[in-house]
Write a protein that binds this DNA or RNA. Structure first.
Lengths: 205, 205
DNA sequence: CAACTTTGTTTCGTAAAGGAAACTCTTTTC
DNA sequence: GAAAAGAGTTTCCTTTACGAAACAAAGTTG
């Protein structure tokens, strides 16, 4: 039986999360991508509009392509720039899973919020979920707006609260209500129910 | 009073996830970055090792830099590649917000799930949140594993359910429990309580 | 086996990148 | 107000990218 020509490209190579450009990686990386797709230089040439010879030289580091050539590469191969320079670091995150039982999260209290971090076994997640009890009772409990990169979603699990934000009128939210907002906009929460409100919060950067 | 030579660099550079390269943006983008930092061509020249003249030509689109020149740019200016090419195309997402009242989401029923999509006013979100009532009652209600790119987080709001996944033993989850998992791994849910279980689901790609 | 195709590499000419130094134009300095 | 310094642009020249075409090495076909 012949070997399957289209093998999965499981490259367990670890790279740092921000993936700074390594000087001489490009040729090797391009060849990897080409071979893992079972493409010939000619095929890549047609896809990208670059000459076979040029591609060969790039792969062998005999030439530093111009920016427009790099553009043709990314466009023709259907990949984006970061992919060209850093390897896929997905395999480590493949198929992972983390269950957090009720009340079994990792406590993280602050002056105004009582957070319970969820799924803390996993690192490098796209989202950070946590349950929070809102201890704050008035606007003045905060020194300043809370502002940070990314987007946030929150759902009121119990009680009610007031959602203050920098660019909107305050809004009262009740159990079952939810908000999605840009976290770089100043925001803060204040419980309005007898019991401190509890919410589910998910952050993505 | 002399003007402060070091103005705040609010360049709101959003690195979109796909960030396709626009052909002629690079020069403009580079000038934006340089001016927002109050750098002269000479300063950038020293930082990057590229000649003043070369930088001038790049900014005026009289020259398409080689890849090695681009590397010197990103390294010298302390920015990463996506920042150089994707212009700030996201100011529209700045400070936005969407409130979804209880039960007021957008219904989206399927054979096995009854979804209620949240925050549907916003597009191009990092996360997609929705509440779901799990109608499925047995494993065989599904034709095949559900698999898609990205990561998912779910919290059981009411009832209980069984979380089946491709690489793990089935796990029963009760109200308040949560799971975070790689969505490319096959997964499916089955209600186990008398009432169909309700969950909060958040997806990120 | 020879003829042919398909692969990647190398050669060579041309067009373009990129540095040194000239040139403008504006802003300081005395 | 002239001289000097600092900004960006343009010119000139060397190096380099890159395509056409030749080459070499491998597998196909008859």
């Amino acid at each position: 039986m012949a070997e399957n020509p289209r093998l999965p490209k499981m490259q367990m190579q670890q790279t740092s999360s921000e993936a700074q450009v390594e000087p001489m990686q490009l040729g090797k990386r391009l060849r990897e991508i080409r071979l893992s797709n079972n493409w010939t230089l000619e095929e890549v040439s047609q896809r990208t509009g670059l000459a076979r010879s040029t591609l060969s030289k790039i792969e062998n580091d005999q030439l530093s392509p111009t920016f427009s050539a790099v553009q043709k590469l990314t466009k023709g191969l259907g990949i984006d720039l970061p992919q060209l320079f850093s390897k896929p670091l997905q395999p480590m995150t493949m198929g992972r899973r983390d269950i957090t039982r009720n009340q079994a999260g990792k406590p993280h209290p602050t002056a105004t919020y009582e957070h319970e971090l969820l799924a803390t076994q996993l690192v490098n997640k796209k989202m950070v979920p946590f349950k929070t009890i809102v201890r704050a009772r008035q606007f003045s409990d905060y020194a300043d707006w809370v502002r940070h990169a990314g987007e946030e979603f929150l759902l009121v699990l119990s009680g009610s609260l007031c959602f203050y934000s920098e660019f909107y009128e305050p809004v009262e939210l009740f159990t079952g209500d939810s908000v999605y907002y840009d976290a770089s906009m100043g925001h803060m929460l204040v419980s309005t129910s007898d019991e401190d409100a509890e919410i589910l919060w998910v952050m993505a950067t």
